[in-house]
C-alpha cells in the first residue's frame, strides 16, 4: 500500500462520509417528506458511491500488488452493489414520493403544485 493509493482511499472515504452525514442533517432541517427525500436519498447515494469507490480503489491496488484474486472478487462485488444501489435508490425514492402524494400529503411551503392542479384538488393551507 503506497502513500498515493492511501491518500486516494482516504479522500474518497472522507467525501463519502461528508455527504452521508449531510444526508442525516437534511432529515432534521427540511420541512416535509419530499424535501427530506432529496436530502436522504441523494446525499446517501453520492456518499455511498464514494465509499464504494474507496473500497474498489483499495482492493484493486491490493490485487495489482499482491495478486490475490479475492481482492478482485471484492472489487467486482462492490461494483455490482453500486450499480444496484443507483437503480433501486432512484426507484425507491420515486415510489415513496408518489405514494406520499397519493395519500394527499401536500408539499409544505410549495410555491406551485402542478400535480394537485391536474388532479383538481384544492391544496390545504401550508
Amino acid at each position: 500500500m503506497g502513500i498515493v493509493e492511501g491518500l486516494f482511499v482516504l479522500l474518497f472515504l472522507l467525501v463519502g462520509i461528508f455527504f452521508n452525514s449531510l444526508g442525516v442533517v437534511s432529515l432534521y432541517r427540511f420541512p416535509d417528506v419530499y424535501t427530506r427525500m432529496h436530502g436522504a436519498t441523494k446525499c446517501s447515494t453520492f456518499g455511498s458511491l464514494f465509499t464504494g469507490l474507496a473500497v474498489i480503489v483499495y482492493t484493486l491496488f491490493r490485487y495489482l500488488s499482491a495478486g490475490e484474486s479475492r481482492f478482485l472478487v471484492l472489487a467486482i462485488h462492490t461494483f455490482v452493489a453500486m450499480a444496484v444501489l443507483l437503480v433501486t435508490n432512484a426507484t425507491g425514492a420515486h415510489a415513496i414520493a408518489r405514494a406520499a402524494h397519493r395519500s394527499r400529503i401536500d408539499p409544505k411551503f410549495a410555491v406551485v403544485d402542478r400535480l394537485a392542479e391536474k388532479e383538481g384538488r384544492r391544496r390545504r393551507a401550508a
Partner: peptide, 13 residues
C-alpha cells in the same frame, strides 16, 4: 431515474 438521482429534482409522477 436520471431526474430522481440528480439531487434537487425528484420525479413524483
Amino acid at each position: 431515474d436520471s431526474i430522481t438521482l440528480t439531487p434537487g429534482t425528484l420525479t413524483v409522477d
